[in-house]
Write a protein that binds this DNA or RNA. Structure first.
Lengths: 247, 247
DNA sequence: CGGACAATTGATCTACCTCAAAATTGGTGG
DNA sequence: CCACCAATTTTGAGGTAGATCAATTGTCCG
């Protein structure tokens, strides 16, 4: 019943299984969703602040981010997304977007019409609950970011972000052995953490000097998980991961 | 079919009508929810970080807040709640709480067992959608707070918060003529905005000197809405208010 | 009237910002 | 395979919004 990993819907199944338990029937229903796949280049907008999308976006491969831009051009990154995420699932119930969704890396995304999503959740309350749960986890991550931006210093914020992304990737089988992708530039990282690029640079060097991480190019290695967790005061409870997905 | 305003469930109906359209049948179903009301004193915890609540809390009167506390005792307020809100609705799908819910003022809250909420959303998909939508608006507010904490200065953050609470209260009929309750202390405000109390104090005085607001005790008057909106770069889109509720 | 809490003020300090330039890196075409 | 370009990362040198510490002054109640 599990679709071949070549199906663009496989990452969604994997993701849903990391946060809920699905029956075979439900898996089947997800698999038969009509999805139109596209490959997008890095740093390309998918849907923009103010848009009224008529479809949802499922990230199959690569990373996406969501952001708001202020009047003076300052930008705040609100969330980072990895394969399996549906970053604009909320558009199902909030017709007008209040922020922009874009690619960070080259990415494969699958578009599913709202209509079909509505049918899916109507016919399968279990899936509706799982998707609702997913949006609630999203909100829990927002709360953690609020806490970091409001009350943590630069070092803790950066360490915390590394921990968070490692756990998120691990939950969907995309990280192991303390290694994972981390394809942000320091400028993007500063927009996510409410810092300047200069300060991010200096603080990342600090973490490297402390032998907590090794990060170059797009690959991150966590050298001292315990130390990094302590530096970021990281407690994964808020991610509400149910279990590690089979790859 | 509308319950008398003395019913503890009236604020919930009013709130849901401010974000969605309910049929009489759905209103009836909400009204017949079993709710146990209690009056709580100011600054009293309702559910704590780590708890596994078995009921949801509906705020009938007064203000609540949600917060996280860090290791060193620093506190971040994550959200402010006004009558009609169900601040821990997410516990329906995320069993363990990742933050604390407490009263800001003396408050009346009604508790509804998860069991009955589950029955309600199973029997009434329209209500399920409205509640889901409500949690999504919650998340949209979190995103706006992230933006403020990350990229706005103290003056803009404070102005923005005044605007946000005025609009939220207005949507449920609890504000008019540029006047509303604002029962936070400056210390609580600083915990919400990621600032120190001293700096909040000085910046509020600035806004008063600019004749944008008048705020003393628990009552706020907005003297210059346009000016305050400009100071906070406030755009209410993210609140996704559908229409003003009848009081 | 007194006590507790909240608001206000003053003085000093610092984490982080801004501006600007230099050094690296990775990708590309010849 | 190398030279070159553009995008990143890194370094240096000030500057500042906002923090911290420590009183002092309201203000609201019982």
């Amino acid at each position: 019943m599990i679709p071949p990993s070549s199906s663009p819907l496989h990452p969604l199944i994997r993701k849903l299984e990391s946060i809920a338990t699905l029956t075979d029937d439900e898996k089947q229903a997800v698999t038969s969703l009509p999805a139109r796949s596209r490959t997008l280049e890095p740093r390309q907008e998918i849907v923009r602040d103010g848009d009224r999308p008529s479809q949802c976006c499922l990230l199959v491969e690569g990373w996406l981010y969501r952001s708001k831009t202020l009047g003076d051009g300052k930008r705040q990154i609100l969330a980072l997304h990895v394969p399996g995420d549906m970053p604009d699932l909320h558009s199902l119930h909030l017709p007008v977007l209040d922020h922009t969704l874009a690619t960070l890396t080259r990415a494969i995304v699958a578009f599913i019409p709202h209509e079909n999503m509505h049918e899916l959740v109507t016919a399968h309350p279990g899936i509706a609950a799982a998707l609702w749960r997913d949006t609630l986890i999203d909100a829990a991550i927002f709360r953690e970011w609020i806490t970091g931006l409001g009350r943590r210093d630069a070092r803790a914020r950066i360490a915390h972000l590394f921990c968070e992304m490692y756990v998120k990737l691990h939950a969907v089988g995309l990280a192991a052995d303390q290694c994972c992708e981390f394809p942000l530039t320091q400028a993007e990282m500063s927009d996510a953490l409410g810092l300047s690029t200069v300060h991010v640079n200096r603080t990342v060097q600090e973490l490297r000097a402390e032998q907590l991480i090794s990060w170059s190019g797009r690959s991150l290695q966590i050298l001292d998980w315990t130390g990094l967790v302590a530096a970021g005061e990281f407690d994964p409870t808020y991610l509400h991961v149910q279990k590690r997905a089979a790859s």
